[in-house]
């Protein structure tokens, strides 16, 4: 008679083994031998820290780590943590040649921006090489977004605190529709990630990928014939800008264009702020001065009035 309980196949068994709770901490026999043999159960000193059962580079994962989705979640979480500026597009069945054209034009435009920044005397940051346009898996991207936004590793008392840990899963599980970006995460999506918040680069990218008159004009046929290539144009017609995530905040298309339209980039913004603060300072000093000035004028006018009266009275007397 065959056994009633069938053994699970080896693939399933390996997954089950992965989620097994760790055993209680073991104690070495030598440690027990040093204690007095007659010591009672309550007299044994504090149990030493459990032996680290996992190498520090491989902490245990909540979901099976050998699955592609687990590794994608890690990748997306690190992308979301490291990238302050990312744009979300919907791509409607672009062919490979169209992708090539789009990527080529994008890198060309960004390299041009880098070159002009260096020519203006800024330190070369070489942002263009860090800009990446990649297709994402929406569900896993949403999960990674929730982990990044709602999981606070520093608030955890104990245990593992990496993005794949059980604690991160618990923190993110109940926030399914809470984030502002979550309605966007459906259908075919592509993410353009820019490693720094640089309005100049954003403007260049927008005028290539989502041109809009008058602030984000597409390059003219004379200036950039490659942009008006048939395959590139066909690809760009199928890309739709949906929104953006800038410094952890969600922007719609208008908001993205506003960020891209900041004149002079971040330096220009700082200049504006300095101007504003200076004018505020001038206003404050004016206001503070005005009280004493008023008093001075009042007293002064009273004095002249009295003097006039005295002068007027003197000849009569």
């Amino acid at each position: 008679m065959p056994p009633r309980i069938q053994r699970p196949p080896s693939t399933v068994a390996s997954i089950l083994r992965c989620k097994r709770t760790p055993l209680r901490s073991r104690q070495y026999a030598t440690a027990a031998a040093t204690a007095t043999p007659a010591a009672g159960h309550h007299q044994i000193p504090n149990i030493p820290d459990p032996i680290a059962r996992y190498p520090p580079t491989q902490p245990p994962s909540f979901k099976p780590p050998q699955f592609r989705k687990s590794q994608l979640l890690r990748q997306y979480a690190s992308l979301l943590r490291s990238t302050p500026l990312m744009l979300l597009f919907q791509h409607n069945n672009l062919t490979a040649t169209e992708w090539v054209g789009v990527r080529r034009e994008l890198t060309k435009a960004l390299q041009k921006v880098d070159a002009t920044l260096v020519a203006e005397g800024h330190v070369s940051q070489n942002i263009a090489s860090g800009v990446k346009i990649q297709i994402i898996q929406t569900g896993i991207f949403g999960a990674a977004l929730r982990v990044v936004e709602y999981f606070r590793p520093e608030a955890q008392q104990s245990g593992f605190t990496h993005s794949l840990s059980a604690a991160a899963y618990e923190a993110a599980a109940n926030q399914r529709t809470a984030h502002g970006l979550s309605p966007l995460l459906s259908g075919p999506l592509v993410v353009l990630s820019i490693p720094t918040v640089s309005p100049q680069h954003l403007k260049a990218a927008l005028s290539i990928l989502a041109p809009n008159q008058p602030n984000f004009p597409a390059p003219t046929r004379k200036a950039n014939p490659g942009y008006h290539d048939l395959s590139c144009q066909a690809g760009l017609a199928k890309l739709m800008l949906l929104g953006a995530r800038v410094e952890g905040r969600v922007f719609d298309v208008e908001g993205t264009r506003w960020v891209g339209g900041i004149p002079g980039g971040l330096d220009g913004l700082r200049g504006q702020l300095v101007n504003m603060l200076q004018s505020i300072g001038a206003g404050v000093t004016n206001t503070l001065e005005s009280a004493s000035k008023n008093l001075y004028f009042t007293v002064e006018s009273r004095r002249t009035m009295l003097e006039d009266e005295e002068k007027g009275e003197a000849p009569k007397a």
Partner: peptide, 23 residues
């Protein structure tokens, strides 16, 4: 409006067209 969850329908409809449909 992409920020409305119900916009999914229109977006999916657009994504169903084949690659050369725009010609």
């Amino acid at each position: 409006n992409p920020f409305s969850p119900r916009a999914k329908t229109a977006r999916l409809f657009l994504s169903f067209f084949p690659a050369d449909a725009r010609q």
